[in-house]
Nucleic acid binder design. Structure first.
Lengths: 369, 369
DNA sequence: TTGAAAGCGCTAACAG
DNA sequence: CTGTTAGCGCTTTCAA
């Protein structure tokens, strides 16, 4: 039976009767043994005869009993829950291919050790600070993940003060010193991208980065700069945008308005890159004939836009799994496991091509060699 | 200090010293009052003098104390945690704009009542069943959300048996009978889409749906069929795909290979729609001149593909918030709150246009009027 | 190999 | 208004 309205349905409010849950006591009684025995069996400890063990398992089965996580948490001073706080504009979150993959990976890691994930989405720094404080002070979690590190991030200090295990996920930076960190080399991806463009003959290679406050934004930009230097190419122009389509389109226009407009642009993510191609099209430019474009993330849509997007792919899932296993090891005070991380992939599709013969604007000054 | 490798960094394993947490006892002693007084103050109950209240708050502040969630959970037989289990191929998850918005909305609702969210991502039905069982049998959550309902879904029954409050999120169906449900009318969006196409003169309107097992897939397809009927148009061809880009492209080719190929296609999501446009382009068809395309979701990229995608937008955030508030009410055995849900939006961009004069294939048989 | 009993930190009767 | 006390369901020490 449902109450129907144009906008929303709500079914009957049939209160769920709270039937008494079976307890360890019940299981022990049914098995004719003590609580201790039951506890030992369910925690895989020796000291219970095979016979008793069987009786206990059967009793538990019949009662549908499993140790109560709340009671365990209190008794062990350990929740077996890890926290992930994500600060992001809700509308942007849906955009973020990293997030979903990372969370999936985290789950895989957690599942291997029977941990659970508590997720919190917040929209500003104040809420974020509060979220961490609550998580820790109310002992809701045993450890937390730190993602999207910012320059001068307050979280490593805060959480160290709060005395809770953390693992930082992201590119290396001075913020991650003295802290467990699963660091991925997304710089390598950008490097491959720039090298690819240089090999195609591009001389002016621009960059549209994400929001400047993020460590990973800097890390990618630095990689772009360094690679250009290594190749003996002049540093191209760049604009720091905000990871949104609108920002990417605007930045692209600004770059193309420049006197030394780039013939190729490396973007901080796929969304900006695709919006950038759109912007280029708006100006009558053809990708990749007039402009080459490279994204970052390899979203599922990347092979289905026109032209198909050349991009960098990171294995967010593996990254998440490693982060989870590392944090669990830290929480349990065990040595870190060894990981074999797949390398960053560079995927060439159709949005990159040879540099145009005639630069779209004034010839850029060509330094040495 | 960091150990560096090409693939992965792991920082120092500096074990966090477990310093003794302050307890309610400590706070009471420091304030010169009893535990009861402290408990009352922190649970907003009357019966403590303003003077005592102040002393308690100050003592707690100085000790950095907050009630331990684990102890509260045990004492109250209530975790203040709600569970969300998502069964999805990890690679597909990152695609799903609904998921992120929904989770954000859920958080908003939870935050209003100091609840937390436990998230679990699983990849198959067996893992899913196990996840729910654990969540409930180990009392890790007070209630759970059910999303992506399938036809003949085992979950409503399972969870009812397990005696835990649930709220189903999705379009109405017989699976949601006798169960609290926040139901959204995504059929209305499809209806608007079909009407829009009919108004543009399209006679053969096709449909590419998502995986058939989902209730929302059926709901959208039924809306497409019914609207066509209402408009006196013949039922167009449809293919049920799988929400992926590849599936969408393949389905589009199949549809366009048909003798009565559609001049317009309504897709079950944006990803398939965009891949469909790509497929059309591959065959030398121009969108919207030869084929009109409508998506579903309004992903951030929708305005930045060529042509800009006409689509349906649901307010996943509000949906999530409502679901959360409903579930909390259910858990606390309170009457359901009233909601004012924003209506589904239909967003016209450039991927839809007048029906072509000459159908791309054989003329479709034109029934009555 | 088994069991009794003392916590874990909080809430909530109940008595003062 | 304030304090005492008995749980909540489990783990774990210690003695049998």
């Amino acid at each position: 039976m449902l109450l129907f309205s144009e906008r929303l349905h709500v079914g009957v409010n049939k209160p769920v009767k709270k039937t008494k849950r079976a307890t360890i006591e019940d299981v022990a009684r049914k098995a004719g043994l003590s609580k201790t025995a039951v506890s030992f069996v369910f925690n895989g400890r020796s000291g219970v005869s095979a016979e008793s063990q069987k009786r206990i398992m059967q009793a538990a089965e019949e009662l549908g009993w499993r140790p109560d996580a709340r009671a365990r948490a209190l008794s062990l001073s350990q929740t077996h829950v890890l926290g992930l706080v994500v600060k992001r504009d809700p509308s942007l979150l849906s955009t973020d291919p990293f997030f979903a993959g990372f969370v999936s990976g985290v789950q895989m890691g957690l599942a291997e050790h029977n941990y659970s994930l508590m997720l919190q989405v917040v929209s500003d720094t104040e809420a974020e600070r509060l979220a961490y404080q609550q998580l820790v002070r109310e002992a809701k979690v045993d450890g937390v993940f730190l993602t999207d590190l910012e320059t001068e991030d307050f979280r490593p200090r805060l959480l160290t003060t709060l005395r809770i295990p953390i693992v930082v996920v992201g590119p290396p930076s001075h913020e991650t010193e003295n802290v467990a960190a699963v660091e991925m080399n997304d710089a390598a991806g950008v490097k491959r991208a720039v090298q690819h463009l240089a090999a195609l003959g591009h001389k002016v290679i621009g960059h549209v980065s994400g929001n400047d406050k993020y460590v990973h934004t800097r890390s990618r930009r630095d990689a772009w700069i360094e690679t250009l230097e290594e190749l003996g190419l002049p540093q191209g122009p760049y604009i720091s945008a905000d990871f949104t389509g609108e920002g990417g389109a605007r930045a692209t226009h600004e770059l193309l308005d420049l006197p030394n407009a780039p013939t190729a642009i490396v973007y901080g993510n796929d969304l900006m890159a695709i919006a950038g191609m759109f912007a280029a099209g708006d100006r009558g430019l053809s990708v990749p004939n007039d402009l080459s474009v490279i994204g970052f993330d390899d979203i599922p849509l990347a092979p289905y836009v026109t032209p198909r997007l050349t991009t960098v792919r990171q294995n967010a899932i593996e990254w998440g799994r490693c982060a989870a296993l590392t944090l669990i090891a830290l929480v349990e005070n065990r040595p870190f496991p060894e990981f074999e991380m797949p390398p960053v992939e560079f995927i060439v599709r159709s949005s990159t091509g040879p540099a145009p013969h005639l630069p779209p604007a004034v010839t850029a000054p060509n330094h040495d060699r």
